[in-house]
């Protein structure tokens, strides 16, 4: 079997814009799921609302495309009703951190056994580019015409603090590392959170002088700061540029988890 067997090929090509990074994250997730050797009948993909949340519609297994922000609430229900099922959640930054923020912290706290892949495109893509809690400071969006003035929500750090068992962040450019991180997340009992920074050339890039897809990829590549390097810089007292985000593994631990089959 290969990752290809998990796609609903009759539904491809998908509706994502040219150069949208969401497709890459689906590739990486299915590659990791395939490497786990899971059965299609025991795997469920769950999502909320948004461009990113359309992903389960292109996958052959059973799936739930739920209401905005409530993917984790539905996922918790599915897992507790039948702990033998493998749960993978696709979500966006707006879906997870804005309207679904409370479900997120409590799913981390309860440490429900599931893997959450958040495609963070730093904007509300589907509704045309409103600012999200993850829009970088100074970035333009339809709701921040003079530049975003609020600080960014660091979702990976939030998941660590709230109690998730495994947390990692990569970008759509780091496909190999991202696939490995997702697979580690799938293997870890308890709540695994993988944040994937992705490009949205349509709603984000177009307004922020990153119109070309290659510009957005270069942005992700140059703004990613390796965890090891960040730690070294902190030790040496070097200032960390505020516009950069750390990539790598944030935590791996074994707090008591909910919904792990006995």
């Amino acid at each position: 079997m290969s990752a290809d067997d998990w796609f609903r090929t009759d539904r491809l090509p998908h509706i994502y814009c040219t150069g949208c990074g969401n497709g890459t994250i689906i590739n990486c997730t299915l590659e990791a799921v395939d490497a786990m050797g899971w059965n299609k009948n025991d795997t469920v993909f769950i999502s909320g609302i948004g461009c990113s949340s359309r992903a389960p519609g292109y996958i052959v297994t059973d799936s739930l495309h739920t209401t905005h922000g409530r993917a984790l609430a539905f996922a918790t229900g599915v897992k507790l009703a039948n702990p033998r099922l493998h749960i993978v959640v696709f979500t966006g930054d707006g879906d997870l951190a804005a309207i679904g923020g409370n479900h997120f912290i409590h799913a981390c706290r309860r440490n429900v056994d599931m893997t959450v892949v958040c495609m963070n495109n730093m904007i509300y893509g589907m509704t045309g580019g409103q600012g999200s809690p993850c829009t970088p400071v100074g970035a333009l969006s339809t709701t921040t015409p003079y530049g975003m003035g609020e600080p960014v929500f660091d979702l990976a750090e939030l998941a660590v603090t709230a109690g998730a068992n495994y947390v990692a962040r990569w970008t759509s450019y780091h496909v190999t590392e991202l696939t490995r991180a997702i697979q580690t997340g799938l293997e870890t009992p308890g709540f695994s959170f993988i944040e994937a920074m992705v490009q949205c050339p349509t709603a984000y890039g177009r307004r922020n002088k990153l119109r070309q897809v290659s510009d957005m990829i270069t942005y992700l590549k140059t703004h990613a700061l390796l965890m090891q390097k960040k730690k070294r810089m902190e030790e040496e007292g070097e200032p960390i540029p505020p516009e950069m985000f750390a990539v790598g593994e944030f935590t791996r631990r074994s707090r008591p988890a909910l919904g792990v089959p006995k």
């Binding site: 090509p13 150069g19 890459t24 590739n27 496909v175």
Partner: peptide, 13 residues
């Protein structure tokens, strides 16, 4: 296989 992994439209094989 990095091109196949990164292609957002599953077009490379």
């Amino acid at each position: 296989g990095v091109c196949q992994m990164i292609c957002p439209d599953q077009a490379i094989r």
